[in-house]
């Protein structure tokens, strides 16, 4: 049985905790806290006005893809003040999922920049809490994402849809490492 570590990143309120909860086969670690009046003006919830809770450490869950592979999922916190946790979370990962909410696409730029500079394999998944208005080609352009990075649609609330995102990441990371192996 092979265990691999995966990180789910993205901006504030994009659905990272939701995705870990949807797919985890164990009770997920819950470090959500009530959003308090102290964060008014700091944590902008435009577009997700009914969001009442926010992750302040990290999410953790586990899913077995088959009898050979089990994924350990770490969901990073979205707000800038918790970025100091990111480096530790990335240690030992095979890759990352960047979740994008098209209502606040700029929230994802930081995550994408960071992954590109670290050379960590990643895919981008557009989380459709609401029906999408634009095609994926528009999303790729808005994110100035290179053609090599897979970009897919998902619904983080749906277990099967979230699982497909994780499978896409594992395949992408595997293809990259095979390509690197072939070059050397």
């Amino acid at each position: 049985m092979e265990g691999v570590k995966i990180v789910i990143v993205g901006g504030f309120g994009v659905g990272k905790t939701t995705m870990v909860r949807s797919v985890s086969e164990i009770r997920p670690l819950n470090t959500e806290e009530t959003m308090t009046q102290a964060s008014v003006g700091v944590d902008q919830n435009a577009g997700v006005a009914n969001k009442a809770m926010t992750t302040v450490a990290f999410d953790f869950g586990r899913i077995s893809l088959n009898e050979h592979m089990v994924l350990y999922l770490f969901g990073a916190p979205g707000q800038e003040r918790f970025r100091f946790l990111w480096d530790r979370l990335f240690a030992g990962t095979i890759g990352a999922v960047v979740l994008v909410d098209m209502r606040r696409v700029e929230d994802s730029w930081h995550a994408i920049d960071l992954l590109e500079s670290r050379g960590t394999p990643f895919i981008v998944a557009r989380n459709n809490f609401i029906a999408p208005r634009y095609g994926l080609a528009d999303v790729r352009e808005a994110l100035t994402l290179s053609e090599e990075v897979p970009l897919i649609d998902c619904d983080a609330r749906d277990r099967e849809s979230s699982k497909q995102v994780l499978i896409a990441l594992v395949s992408h990371a595997h293809a990259l490492s095979s390509a690197r192996g072939a070059m050397s």
Partner: peptide, 14 residues
């Protein structure tokens, strides 16, 4: 310290 302490407390709560 505020961000760190909130994280520690959330993990301790779990």
């Amino acid at each position: 310290l505020a961000a760190i302490a909130a994280g520690v407390q959330a993990l301790s709560q779990s």
